[in-house]
Computed example of a mutant assay.
Amino acid sequence: MHFTEFHVRLAAYGLAVNTADEVLVTWFNGSTGAPACWTMPGGGVEFDENCSDAVIREFFEETGYHVTPGPILGEHHTTFPATADRAPVRSQRFLFAVTVESGVLGTTEVGGTTEFARWVPRPELRSLTPRADIVDVAADALDRPARGDGQPNVNE
């Protein structure tokens, strides 16, 4: 299918791990019609916004933390069929490593899709249910061996 025949939803998410080896996740409330589930902090990239800026904005809105984005750790896409009132949709998601710089845990966006954020032990990440596919992308990134400098190995 040619790119002019479908819509694209671009999204950027962040993966934060604290010193207690906990991962920050959020609870998506299902208010857009998609099922409620655990997901990574992040969301849609605005029209004239780059992905790194979207991660910074979304992370603060959903978690209360100011972050610095690092490398892209993974990507995922999914598609949705056409409906009577829209063309098919491709949802393209990128997962960035992020470093929490400051802030206080709490959702700052009023009336948004995130109900709350929570730190969960890293080993429990894959057992969260229900969960969005981007959580598995994050778990896969965490399972890859680190490079010699301690940074995630994003080339495997």
Results as ranks from 00 to 15, higher is better:
His2Thr: 02
Phe3Ser: 14
Glu5Tyr: 10
Glu5Thr: 15
Phe6Thr: 04
His7Asn: 15
His7Phe: 11
Val8Trp: 13
Leu10Val: 07
Leu10Phe: 03
Ala12Arg: 06
Leu15His: 11
Leu15Asp: 06
Asn18Gln: 10
Thr19Trp: 07
Ala20Ser: 08
Trp27Gly: 13
Phe28Met: 00
Gly30Tyr: 15
Thr32Ser: 15
Thr32Glu: 04
Ala34Lys: 15
Ala34Val: 00
Ala34Pro: 06
Met40Trp: 03
Gly43Glu: 02
Phe47Gly: 10
Phe47Val: 10
Asp48Gln: 09
Glu49Lys: 10
Asn50Asp: 14
Cys51Ala: 15
Cys51Gln: 14
Ser52Tyr: 05
Ser52Gln: 15
Asp53Pro: 02
Ala54Gln: 14
Ala54Arg: 08
Val55Asp: 02
Tyr65Ala: 03
Tyr65Thr: 09
Val67Thr: 08
Thr68Asp: 12
Pro71Leu: 11
Pro71Gln: 10
Pro71Glu: 08
Gly74Pro: 01
His76Gly: 12
His77Lys: 09
Pro81Arg: 08
Ala82Gln: 14
Thr83Arg: 12
Thr83Ile: 07
Ala84Gly: 12
Asp85Glu: 15
Pro88His: 08
Ser91Gln: 09
Ser91Arg: 00
Gln92Glu: 09
Arg93Ile: 01
Phe94His: 07
Phe96Arg: 15
Val98Glu: 06
Val98Thr: 06
Thr99Tyr: 07
Thr99Phe: 08
Thr99Ile: 11
Gly103Val: 03
Gly103Phe: 13
Leu105Ile: 13
Gly106Ile: 05
Thr108Glu: 14
Gly112Tyr: 05
Thr113Glu: 04
Glu115Val: 01
Pro123Cys: 10
Glu124Gly: 04
Leu125Gln: 07
Leu128Tyr: 10
Ala132Tyr: 12
Ala132Glu: 10
Val135Met: 10
Val135Asn: 04
Ala138Pro: 03
Ala138Cys: 03
Ala139Glu: 01
Asp140His: 05
Asp140Gly: 11
Ala141Pro: 10
Asp143Gly: 14
Arg144Cys: 09
Arg144Asp: 04
Arg144Phe: 04
Arg147Thr: 09
Gln151Ala: 15
Asn155Arg: 14
Glu156Val: 01
Glu156Gln: 12
Glu156Arg: 03
